Amino acid sequence: MILRGSAVYWFLFLLFRFVLRRDVRSMGVADLLFVVLVADAASNAMQGDYKSIGDGMVLVSTLAAWNYAMDWLAFRLAPVARFMEPPPEVVVRNGQPNHRLLVRQMMSLHELESKLRSLGVESLAQVRIARLESDGSLSVFTFDDKAHHGPSEGQPPAGGT
Results as ranks from 00 to 15, higher is better:
L33D: 05
R17Q: 07
D135G: 12
V36T: 10
P156S: 11
V140C: 10
K51C: 08
V80D: 04
F141I: 14
A125P: 04
Q96F: 01
G48N: 10
G136M: 04
A41R: 08
P157S: 13
G159P: 15
P87T: 13
A130V: 02
V103K: 11
M107F: 02
A74N: 07
V58Y: 07
Q47A: 15
S26K: 12
H99G: 02
A45P: 08
K115I: 03
L73D: 03
F75S: 13
V103M: 03
V80C: 06
H148G: 07
A39I: 12
Q126E: 15
S137P: 01
M84P: 00
A42K: 09
R100A: 11
D71Y: 07
V38N: 05
L132H: 10
P86W: 01
L132Q: 06
D49W: 00
W72K: 05
F83L: 15
Q47F: 09
R131A: 06
V92Q: 03
L32Y: 14
S139D: 01
A64P: 00
D55Q: 14
T161V: 14
I53P: 06
V103H: 04
W66R: 10
V80S: 09
F141E: 04
D40Y: 05
Q96R: 15
L32D: 08
R131L: 14
V19Y: 09
L101W: 02
E153Y: 06
E111H: 03
L63V: 15
Y68C: 08
S137H: 09
T142I: 02
M46F: 02
R82W: 04
M106F: 10
F34S: 12
M27T: 10
E153H: 11
R76C: 04
S134I: 03
T142K: 14
R17T: 07
A64H: 03
L77D: 04
E113W: 00
L102Y: 01
A74F: 02
Q96K: 15
G160N: 13
F75G: 12
H110N: 13
L102V: 07
M106H: 14
F75Y: 14
F143Q: 06
V38L: 15
A69N: 06
A81F: 01
R17F: 01
S43F: 05
I53Q: 12
L102M: 12
V90L: 07
E153S: 13
R100D: 14
E111W: 01
M84I: 12
L63N: 08
Q126P: 04
K146E: 12
V140F: 03
S123V: 01
A45R: 08
K51M: 11
N67L: 09
L109K: 12
G95N: 06
S123Y: 00
P88W: 00
D144F: 00
E89M: 10
G154Y: 05
H110R: 14
G48A: 11
L109F: 03
L116V: 07
I129M: 11
G54Y: 08
V140S: 08
L101G: 04
D55P: 01
M70P: 08
Y50K: 05
H149G: 06
